[in-house]
Amino acid sequence: MSTPLVEMRDIQISFGGIKAVDHVSVDLYPGEVVGLLGHNGAGKSTLIKCLSGAYKADAGEIYVNGEKATINNPRDARSYHIETIYQTLALADNLDAASNLFLGRELVNKFGLVDDDAMEAETRKIMGRLNPNFQKFSAPVSALSGGQRQSVAIARAVYFNAKILIMDEPTAALGPHETQMVAELIDQLKSEGIGIFLIDHDVHQVKALCDRAAVMKNGELVGVVKVDEVTEDDILAMIILGKKPEHLT
């Protein structure tokens, strides 16, 4: 197989003696969706935050495109084209869509000043692609619906040519129509060769959207399986019992 887009080797993080992530290794290939599953507190969000730069691993290594990567903060992660859509969306509610989309990476004019008009124009372009119904460009995002806010958060990740996308429960707050839109978007991004880590609780959705599923329990990796080779019940058993299905062991 080709070089993995991301390889996380032997990642460990403890919080005051509690091993939140214990010797976990996962990888991700171009055009692949890997689902991360587990109970609340299983360590999946903590693991993924090492990749997005929100946490720093105590031990272990991260390789991007086969080369060792140093990720100390969110800015580092972005420089490796790793983009994250957080469950909380991480939007500044008092700012408009364009300001949120470019937060930390504002477009500036030749004097180094924030160019709001240029950012709004770019936002209009990308939103026209992702969510053509979106019209509220000058309102603060607090005035937007859950789906509209989600599309702002997604636009932020997609706009900057993400190679690796982390989605933390992207459909948790969405209605059926919007969930469908996110699913279509994931398919489209896959076809563009982007690798996606998808954190989700919904086993049915993981079966539908993901190529492989990595299951964690109590900070440890239970196993990584191809979703075609297992049933939903097999995955559930991995989550609840922490055991790999017998026909794969």
């Binding site: 969110p74 500044a92 509610d93 008092n94 300001s99 930390g104 500036v108 000043l113 924030v114």
Partner: peptide, 24 residues
């Protein structure tokens, strides 16, 4: 209104966590 510094002030006030996750 026109500097990154100003933009980050308002972003941090609106959502400190989001500002930090955006690399501010």
């Amino acid at each position: 209104k026109r500097t990154r510094f100003g933009r980050y002030i308002y972003a941090t006030g609106g959502n400190p966590d989001a500002a930090e996750l955006s690399g501010i």
